[in-house]
Design a protein around this nucleic acid. Structure first.
Length: 384
DNA sequence: TCTGGGGTCCTAGGACCC
DNA sequence: TCTGGGGTCCTAGGACCC
């Protein structure tokens, strides 16, 4: 049976969501002028998280440094992101989508797939998708694109066609006409590096890729990746819409400094800060971790990373920090200026029991108490 | 112009075991 | 003294996504 999948994608999500809030509070609509959402706009290293359509028309792109965009457009409106509000907007649009089909997979904060195979039976999928898009726009105040296809890949490719507030189809039979003329970079899973490599061999469009001998492609990009890429270029994808919630596998935090740092005291302070953030997050989700990693980014953007396993899983900040401190000499010589420091944990478990060793460090009780207070403060500042 | 922050998956090489 | 082959686990790095 022919599947019918919808991919729903919020147009310039963070920017639209910020605009909705500002309009509600009596402000102007930043969607109509060149505007962007960024991290801390005062931070000279801050980059653009989302750009309005007028900003994009001027050549301003997501992930571009704010300073660069300001040179393109000195009157650019810059607003700071608000994650709590974004999560609320995300929940709003997801729950409307879920009304249309319970077979829903959230792909990111602003995208989801729904399997409409049975819901569309005997109906026009485009009419249903239009109703869905209009309902989101009219009740929540922001627009989405809906892509319709016979699998997830085609639906996702279709939602990326003309924006905003549009419905597009990309059925298998439309692939040669609508997808093959596009550049390879437009295909999902083809990033910058792969594009460079493919173009070097004269493979410029998705059509070129589709017609390439899979064995040749395998030599270019590796066997497993090549197989998926070749299928996708031909519009084939049999992956199901995954409704199961995926447990996190890792958790990390990183901080980029205003200026590159080389004083070990500064680096240690940064390590402490990210350790607090990561440990707090895993405690909130009732996780404990048995692998800790530290990474640094240098001025030239090269990175270095080391990880180690712990004897037993932990959620205690001091234990995580201690492991990270032990790894630091392996990633950093203690002198070269560093742009960014990060800390991650993985091998997460939910095991409820606590293995209390008879020989447990007597300081542990103190550490746990410290963490408890930290969590309490975080929670209360959030509710203010 | 000067590049954030948070994830996932894959690969290749080394250690170690039989 | 020099040597095979297979399996598993771990780690570092690199690709991709939003």
């Amino acid at each position: 049976m022919k599947r019918i999948i919808f991919h729903i994608d919020v147009n310039s999500a963070f920017l639209s969501w910020t605009a909705v809030k500002m309009v509600r509070e009596g402000g102007g609509d930043i969607r109509l002028v060149p505007s962007v959402v960024s991290g801390d706009p005062k931070d000279r290293r801050s980059i653009i998280t989302a750009a309005s359509i007028p900003a994009k028309k001027l050549g301003i792109k997501t992930a571009q440094p704010v300073s660069m965009a300001l040179r393109t457009c000195p009157s650019l409106v810059i607003v700071q992101g608000d994650w709590a509000w974004y999560r609320a907007c995300s929940e709003g649009f997801i729950s409307i989508c879920r009304k249309y089909s319970p077979v829903l997979q959230q792909f990111s904060i602003d995208e989801c797939f729904i399997d409409m195979t049975f819901r569309c039976y005997g109906d026009d999928p485009v009419a249903i998708a239009t109703r869905l898009k209009d309902e989101i726009r009219d009740s929540l105040g922001f627009t989405v694109n809906v892509g319709i296809g016979s699998n997830k890949l085609l639906a996702k490719m279709a939602s990326d066609f003309e924006k905003p507030d549009k419905v597009h189809t990309l059925w298998l039979e439309e692939v040669p006409e609508k997808m093959w003329p596009l550049g390879v970079r437009d295909l999902l899973w083809v990033g910058k590096k792969t594009e460079e490599r493919l173009v070097m061999y004269g493979i410029r469009t998705i059509g070129d890729l589709a017609q390439l001998d899979p064995a040749v492609l395998a030599r270019l990009v590796g066997k497993k990746y090549a197989a998926g890429l070749h299928e996708n270029a031909n519009g084939r994808d049999d992956s199901p819409v995954e409704t199961e919630f995926q447990e996190a596998k890792s958790c990390s935090a990183e901080r980029t400094f205003e200026k590159d740092l080389s004083d070990p005291k500064d680096i240690d302070r940064a390590l402490f800060r990210v350790a607090c953030i990561v440990a707090h997050r895993i405690r909130r989700e009732k996780f404990r971790a048995s692998c800790v990693s530290v990474f640094v980014k240098y001025r030239d953007f090269s990175t270095s990373q080391r990880q180690c396993s712990l004897a037993e899983p932990t959620d205690v900040t001091a234990v995580i920090l201690n492991a990270a401190r032990g790894l630091l000499p392996d990633v950093w010589d203690g002198r070269t200026p560093i742009r960014q420091v990060g800390l991650g944990v993985s091998k997460l478990t939910h095991d409820p029991y606590e293995q209390l060793s008879l020989f447990e460090d007597p300081k542990m009780a103190y550490y746990r108490e410290w963490d408890r207070k930290y969590d309490e403060e975080k929670t209360s500042s959030l509710n203010k």
